[in-house]
Design a protein around this nucleic acid. Structure first.
Ligand SMILES: [Mn+2]
Ligand SMILES: [Mn+2]
Ligand SMILES: [Zn+2]
Ligand SMILES: [Zn+2]
Lengths: 135, 135
DNA sequence: TAATTCAGCGCAATTACTTGCAATTAATTC
DNA sequence: GAATTAATTGCAAGTAATTGCGCTGAATTA
């Protein structure tokens, strides 16, 4: 049964926690506010601070991961869903995706030169999309 | 004279604006709070909102650029000072730098495959530094 | 230099996120 | 299934960044 995955990581299974995890899995790229709204369909009283704290706990436990797509806050993914780069256009805001493999050589260069192990998904790749370059 | 550069871009030259620009140029990688503290040495009464608004105005005018080094807010550079990648360690927080040229091939791949023009300096390159990998 | 105008200022209110703490409740033990 | 214990919750207060608005003063004109 799915709730055992939470207990298996040494965490208490609360309705709030399970619903936050379900919401992240359903939504993908979701903000804390969007996650809270989804959770409230099943559990109207949940406090925003509970959502934020559960996102942190679930990330530490390895169920979810946050990434930064824009200038501000974070969005959350299921941990096994991070299989792509995020390309974010600074002009129109569109979020495109590309393969992780595209960054393989770059990651290797930085590792060899600096000994630095890059996580290319944590921050978005920022720039200007094809459509916005034409304008 | 240096103040003419501000007027030349169609902006009013106020003491606050000039001091914010000077502070960004002196400090490099500076947060709005650090910039405010520097400005206050000359102009104690300046309001934080004035600092934030001037940073925005000076960026639009092309004098400065913001980048994201951490999970939160932005830091500011002089526009002509962006000559390197930022490598930020998620474990110890250390910020290293590397050459823009290291990303040249990666930028080309994304441009060819997606038509997307990457600005590799806007977001930091996130990962784990050599020292923190050993631990 | 004096009068005019509106960009930019300070301040207070708002939004987004975080933290401290007492009450609740999931999990364990009897 | 009642008692125990401590993780987790809700709530209220705190901190960081943003916005609305009336006043100020930099720039222009005469
Ligand atoms: Mn940004
Ligand atoms: Mn982050
Ligand atoms: Zn675009
Ligand atoms: Zn490190």
């Amino acid at each position: 049964m799915p709730q055992d995955e939470i207990r298996a990581r040494g965490l208490r299974l609360t309705p709030q926690r399970q619903l936050v995890l379900n919401a992240v899995r359903e939504l993908g790229h979701a903000t804390p506010e969007e996650i809270a709204n989804t959770v409230r369909q099943m559990h109207p009283g949940i406090n925003l601070s509970t959502v934020y704290r559960n996102l942190e706990t679930l990330e530490t436990a390895g169920f979810i991961i946050h990434t930064h797509l824009g200038h501000g806050g974070a969005t959350y993914h299921a941990a096994d869903e991070i299989t792509h780069l995020h390309l974010v256009c600074g002009k129109c805001g569109k979020v495109d995706e590309s393969e992780l493999a595209d960054a393989k050589d770059f990651v290797e260069i930085i590792l060899k030169k600096r000994g630095f192990a890059t996580d290319v998904t944590h921050f978005a790749i920022y720039g200007t999309c094809a459509a916005c370059q034409v304008k």
